[in-house]
């Protein structure tokens, strides 16, 4: 499943870039994320807790910055996480793009998400909606933090 999210920040591109590339801090903008820590260069370990009604997922995994180009304002991030209780995993690739427009910066995140194993048996449409909300919350939170 693919999504695109945008958020506009009243700040320079450099400031947004700096915020975005502080991965542990930026990741805390995803609701349910706990304990993101560095594990090598451009690699981070972390946990994401997601709840859809009675179904509680605890996704343990890693996040890798696979490419970054400060000049172009683009970065690629890949996240792999697994819930061993329910039996299932997610894999997400995110293409981040910052573009400056006058005194604002637009953050654009294109996500390609795969939901695998038993997690996927819980209504794909609802999962899609949840993931969509999660990414929009992330973008909005990041925008708020930069402006703070």
């Amino acid at each position: 499943m693919k999504f695109t999210h945008t958020a506009t920040v009243a700040a320079s591109r450099d400031r947004v870039w700096a915020k975005l590339m502080d991965i542990p801090a930026a990741a805390r903008c995803v609701p349910g994320v706990a304990s993101v820590r560095a594990a090598g260069s451009d690699k981070y370990l972390g946990t994401l807790a997601v709840q859809v009604g009675p179904v509680r997922l605890v996704l343990d995994g890693d996040l890798v910055v696979t490419a970054r180009d400060e000049k172009a304002g683009t970065a690629s991030v890949k996240a792999d996480a697994k819930d061993s209780r329910v039996g299932g995993a997610i894999r997400a690739t995110m293409a981040l793009h910052l573009s400056e427009k006058e005194d604002e910066t637009e953050l654009r995140i294109a996500t390609d998400l795969a939901v695998m194993g038993r997690i996927g048996e819980f209504g794909q449409a609802v999962i899609k909606r949840k993931a969509d909300q999660l990414m929009q919350d992330f973008a909005d939170c990041l925008a708020r933090q930069v402006m703070r």
């Binding site: 009675p54 179904v55 209780r85 329910v86 039996g87 038993r118 997690i119 048996e121 819980f122």
Partner: peptide, 12 residues
């Protein structure tokens, strides 16, 4: 609903 979710392994 509960038993279905449990049988699916989604609720434990």
């Amino acid at each position: 609903a509960t038993v279905l979710l449990m049988r699916q392994g989604l609720l434990r």
